[in-house]
Design a protein around this nucleic acid. Structure first.
Lengths: 197, 197, 197, 197
DNA sequence: AATGAATGAGGGTTCATTCAT
DNA sequence: CATGAATGAACCCTCATTCAT
């Protein structure tokens, strides 16, 4: 992952990877069989890790949709899932997933799962707030896009942004649709900043 | 661009490009001197085209910040700037821009210009609405992220989304911060859909 | 073929082949796509060449079975089909054909065709001579084995043998079963030797 | 030997050999020092085994040249020396012996010994039969070739042939030169077949 | 004595680049 | 200008060999 993040996908060679890992090329190939296999297992590892981070966060958040959505935000932009390296690697795989069916499938499955969860949570939120008219499908997809975009921006220009402001942006995004629920969260975060600053 | 979109950056070869363009390999190299140069000129072309599309749209929109922001949305997600091929190519360059300073610089300049424009427009909007307390900096960066993310999602899964819904999502995003200004736009779009449907 | 004959199959590298042909490795791979393909095409070339040599000889020999069999001997051990290089290459392919179905198939087809022809000719000879009791099937297979063995010996030790004596051995072999037909041929060859020596 | 027979010489790896023998790769290298050494010792083993089989058969056959030659036939095509595996390995070594002086030397020595014995026996037979005019040198070399060819054919296509018919072919070969001596052998074998069938 | 993880040289192959035509 | 055959560096991968355990 470090090698992909540093050199880019196209310039990632087995020699780079082996040297970065402090291993010989022979043994890397012995374990991973193939460069393609190594790359795919990297993607799998990334997806698995992300999946379990998210699951753990959701379990901890409990049944409340606001808490759950906030947990997703905290996970997506937390220090474990959203490092400069990892976001760069995700970006690389997204870019390369066109024309590589295996990558595409895995990415899409993850995105679909994510989308279903967000849609479900937003749906419950809309029902509770009496705003069933909202297009939760689009809200969810756009939230996904927002997070993806934040990752892209963090990957391409880590200076432009910090993770806390990114989280704030996500909360502000939800506050636009669910002011009653996410307004307080926003305010609390703002006060936190004021106290911290 | 078609070749990058189809095969991915890492698997794009001069032979592919030449064949796709109906040219001999020799002449492609004669004109572009180098693969690296061809790729860079591709990025420049993409950036120039996008820049002029945006400029034209802004000129046409006039001085009103709402109209200008909406023009940006229309451009970013319009049929000229946001084709499946182009979004895929942007994605590829973003991914590869780490570790390639020339790409990085060009991408960053474009993003900075864009960011300045959005920030300016949002600032005027905030002033006009009497909501100077808004963090226009973050609003602008997040809008950028949202558009980037929508491009990513359109590039990786064209089915998940259509451009009209993406535009709607952008307007909804702004409506969260500037309800008075973007609310009517949203409503109009919604009515348009109703009439059309 | 020269490289296989010189270094053996196992030590034949593309670098050897390219250097022996006075070409770069790149262009060899460009033309043959694959080492495996190059080897297979070599076998095909060898088989085609042998097939057409044999066919031409048989056409020239006419319908007489003795003349035809003698033409086969002349071809198999003639200067075109039976060079040190070619016999070595045949030997290499025979050895490697176990475990390489494609080689095996081609070799077997050629052998089967050959066997059918020899069996047919011997059958006509046996009928003509009133010795229908002969096991022409085995006679033909053994003749095939004899020729193969002569090739092997010529390949492994070119000094041990010359082609003329090998031909003589083949005629002597047939003379054992068809003395009336092949006896004169033997005698003529012997006289030829006497005159020549 | 099993590995060479199955995969061919070129594709025989130390890993294959070790696995087939149920040993670790380390210990195989420890005992044989080198792949080259292992291969050479394999050839030596094969040659030694063949040599002692032949010697034992000749000892048992006694001084009669016909019995001795028949013993050679029985050995060469008997169940101990002529298994599918062994004939395949011989073929592999013959093929590879070009360009490997050590193999070549060993193969040639064996062939020379064999040739001397056959020549001697045929010479005694010719003298006894009053046919000193025969070219025993060529008869012997051709017999060797015949046996080699039978091995090749058995190695490349075990179905085409069985060992009994191969033996018969050898006897028929000798019967062509020494009808008085090998005719009865042939007849006996034929009767044996009849009784058996 | 025995293992198997580890090494690294060398193989086949790809592909950006050059150049005679 | 244009071609495409030709080059060679660099890639991925295999595998004989070594060595700590």
């Amino acid at each position: 992952m470090r090698t992909i993040a540093r050199h880019g996908f196209a310039r990632t060679t087995m020699a780079h990877v082996a040297k970065a890992a402090g291993l010989s090329q022979g043994i890397v190939n012995f374990y991973f069989k193939t460069k393609e296999a190594l790359l795919y297992e990297t993607l799998e590892h990334l997806a698995d890790e992300y999946g379990s981070l998210l699951q753990r966060a959701l379990d901890k958040a409990g049944p409340d949709p606001v808490a759950a959505l906030d947990a997703m935000i905290e996970t997506d932009l937390g220090p474990d899932a959203c490092t400069p390296t990892k976001s760069a690697v995700w970006l690389a795989f997204w870019a390369e997933s066109r024309g590589r069916p295996k990558y595409r499938q895995l990415c899409r499955e993850l995105a679909e799962t994510y989308h279903r969860q967000v849609t479900g949570l937003c749906g419950r939120l809309a029902k509770r707030g009496g705003t069933e008219g909202l297009d939760v499908e689009t809200i969810a997809r756009s939230f996904n896009a927002l997070v993806d975009g934040l990752w892209v921006d963090l990957a391409t220009d880590p200076q432009s942004f910090d993770r806390e402001r990114a989280k704030h942006a996500c909360r502000a995004y939800f506050a636009g649709f669910f002011p009653a629920e996410f307004g307080p969260l926003l305010a609390r975060a703002r006060d936190g900043h004021r106290r911290a600053g």
